[in-house]
Design a protein around this nucleic acid. Structure first.
Length: 446
RNA sequence: CGGAGUGUGGCUCAGCCUGGUAGAGCACUACGUUCGGGACGUAGGGGUCGCAGGUUCAAAUCCUGCCACUCCGACCA
């Protein structure tokens, strides 16, 4: 993409509304624009990030055996009356009426709808296990939205719903998602710690929140230091292997880890002092097993091997992609701007032409741009007629992992410069060598 | 929902106390000089001062009501 043709509204001053680093940087780098309290447009650069996050989420959900579909945002109140949650949910649910005066709502979650879908088609235990998910906008009318997309009212959520014949099957479904989440956050460059969670009004008795540690996190969290060194399950993980998956989950749930709501001071103090980690965290995922809560209320049954209908055991599994954008920035930025992980960066390479109009520089940039594009590298070619300083500042702000700097001075020696955004390391090399290096390093980690 | 605060050009803000017909910096447009870490000059364009009502000869400024947004708390992916 040529920057001169892109839509990238950069702000020099952070808008006064922004409080935390990620919110300021998202506004300054032109990722989002606020439209109302807790409601944001994703500008082109922000949408690119969201799409990359969603792509990773999809790959890992699919790998774990979940099947994607897409449910609507607007739901009928009748479904929620069946489950009893129409009255129970409270003012967080945005209730609306259509022209026929029917009660509708903007979905804050989809247990009811997915249960309705399931019960209309699935009749036999032979069709299980089943895990259906979608990535869709949700609306929760938060009393106090804040921190940009970190706590918006309209936000994107990946929500998966599992259906199994019995609790044992549901636990395996739960474990699949548990491991898929570990892999997802690892690929996003985040260190996420699963913490035992309160199941709250959604019900059930098995639930974990996935928390990433960040100085500006919303809640206080406590865990054992060992978590930070655990190795994430690899790409060769067999999601069908019940025992192996249980082993992974057991390992990741053995040591102490809890948010402040679930914190047990005694258990925490039992950890050797040197191994205690007390930090702030951002919740980026939450998984639940809730048994037959909805299947019973909404009569979702399948015939078991004995021919008798039984209520299916369900679980739900959420990740907040829009919140993840903010979380990623909280976890990775510096004074100059955002530092994107390679897998998520809106552009992998920023190509800086330091002297537009200089024949040799323009030609070299043109060749590099064509070469990178041809190799499938996401490259943002800064071809604006700006001074070099302005280009460095803008490109540091938007945080492409690599900056390929091309100007007449180094080009006179047949060199260009390649800068690693995260470390500031620069190396001087020939255009061909730079192209070679970038077409190799830009491969997404799996 | 309780408490606090803010609304003036695209962004950051001054002006309000003490009413007199709207400013600065950045951004934007044109031209020129510049050009390896946010250049400079000259000339321009752009604002129903959140909305409504009131007081007044006169309201960004004073009064009343409303709306929006932010922060702290309670609540939450």
């Amino acid at each position: 993409m040529r920057l001169s043709r892109f839509f990238l509204p950069i702000l020099r001053d952070p808008p006064k509304d922004a409080e935390i680093a990620s919110h300021k940087l998202m506004l300054r780098a032109g990722l989002i624009r606020q439209q109302a309290a807790g409601s944001y447009t994703l500008l082109p650069l922000g949408l690119r990030v969201l799409n990359k996050i969603n792509a990773v989420i999809r790959e890992e959900q699919n790998r774990a055996g979940a099947i994607e579909l897409l449910m609507p945002t607007i739901q009928s109140a009748d479904l929620w009356r069946e489950s009893g949650r129409y009255d129970a949910y409270g003012k967080e649910m945005l209730r609306i009426k259509d022209r026929h005066d029917r009660d509708m709502l903007f979905g804050p979650t989809n247990e009811e709808m997915i249960t309705e879908i399931f019960r209309s088609y699935v009749k036999s235990y032979k069709e299980l296990p089943l895990n259906l998910y979608h990535i869709q906008w949700k609306f929760r009318d938060e009393v106090r939205p804040r921190f940009g997309v970190m706590r918006g009212r309209e936000f994107m959520m990946k929500d998966a719903y599992s259906f199994d014949l019995d609790k044992a099957g549901a636990v395996h479904a739960y474990n699949r998602m548990f491991v898929a989440y570990l892999r997802t956050f690892e690929r996003l460059g985040l260190k996420a710690v699963p913490m035992r969670a309160d199941t709250g009004p959604i019900g059930g008795d098995l639930s974990h929140e996935f928390i990433i540690l960040a100085a500006t996190g919303e809640s206080e969290v406590f865990c054992h230091k060992d978590f930070l060194d655990y190795t994430t399950p690899g790409i060769d993980t067999d999601f069908e292997d019940v025992a192996a998956l249980q082993g992974i989950v057991d390992k990741w749930t053995a040591a102490y880890a809890a948010t402040s709501e679930m914190h047990d001071e005694t258990a925490y103090n039992a950890i050797p002092e040197a191994s205690r980690v007390s930090a702030r965290g951002i919740e980026v995922g939450h998984i639940f097993y809730f048994g037959t809560k909805y299947s019973a209320a909404m009569n979702a049954t399948v015939a078991g091997p004995d021919g008798k209908d039984t209520h299916v055991h369900m679980g739900s599994y959420g990740i907040g992609p829009t919140r993840l954008i903010a979380a990623l920035i909280e976890a990775s930025h510096d004074d100059a701007g955002i530092i994107w992980p390679d897998a998520i960066a809106p552009f992998t390479v920023s190509l800086l032409n330091l002297k537009m109009g200089d024949t040799a520089t323009d030609a070299a940039c043109g060749e590099l741009y064509a070469g990178l594009t041809k190799a499938g590298v996401d490259v943002l070619y800064d071809d604006r007629d700006e001074r070099p300083g302005a280009k460095f500042i803008v490109n540091d702000l938007i945080g492409s992992p690599w900056q390929l700097i091309v100007g007449p001075k180094s080009l006179a020696d047949g060199k260009v410069e390649l800068k690693r955004r995260a470390t500031g390391e620069r190396e001087s090399l020939s255009p061909a060598a730079a192209l070679d290096k970038l077409t190799q390093t830009s491969v997404m980690p799996a």
